[in-house]
């Protein structure tokens, strides 16, 4: 199989992966977000396969088998039927493919901003947490002891 070394995937696998990523999370004008097949997001997905590479390759192979040919080359209806059957099967391949796409999609700056979140790592700014109303504890404080004495 031809291999262009992009994340260890062949050109055909890359095409299939981009296709299924776009099906999983399509672009949306309503929410003003790109799809997971966006060039920058897809590049992140491919570069981040890491420990999931083997399972993702097997997932793409399974998708093509279910679709009756190269996944990305099939018509929409066939792809959707194959994708639904694939998800229904569950297991490590499905988990790996979803994880590979979603972990990159939901850290893209544009996507994170669309959720009303700041596109930054937690450290060093951290976050603010409200103290809350500690008088909520009053009825619990009033309870008798609950622990059992142990001889």
């Amino acid at each position: 199989m031809e291999n262009d070394n992009a994340g260890g995937l062949s050109a055909a696998e890359l095409k299939d992966l981009r296709c299924v990523a776009g099906m999983m999370v399509p672009a949306s004008t309503e929410y003003a977000v790109p799809g997971a097949d966006d060039a920058a997001i897809f590049a992140d997905i491919v570069n981040s396969l890491g420990r999931d590479l083997g399972d993702v390759r097997r997932a793409l192979s399974t998708l093509s088998s279910l679709a009756g040919g190269a996944f990305a080359e099939q018509d929409v209806s066939r792809r959707e039927t194959a994708a639904a059957a694939f998800r229904e099967r569950g297991g490590a391949e499905v988990a790996a493919l979803s994880r590979a796409v979603l972990q990159c999609y939901y850290r893209d700056d544009r996507v994170v901003r669309s959720l009303g979140l700041e596109p930054r790592p937690p450290f060093p700014k951290g976050h603010t947490l409200e103290q809350g109303d500690w008088s909520l504890l009053d009825p619990v404080r009033a309870r008798p002891k609950m622990w059992r004495d142990a001889p």
């Binding site: 999370v25 399509p26 309503e30 988990a95 979803s98 979603l102």
Partner: peptide, 22 residues
């Protein structure tokens, strides 16, 4: 967090693929 929510809900079948995902 947002990534974990997506991964967990996808695995549970709570989060669809496609147009309704967002």
């Amino acid at each position: 967090g947002p990534v974990t929510e997506a991964i967990f809900s996808d695995a549970d079948g709570r989060l669809p693929w496609g147009k309704d995902h967002h």
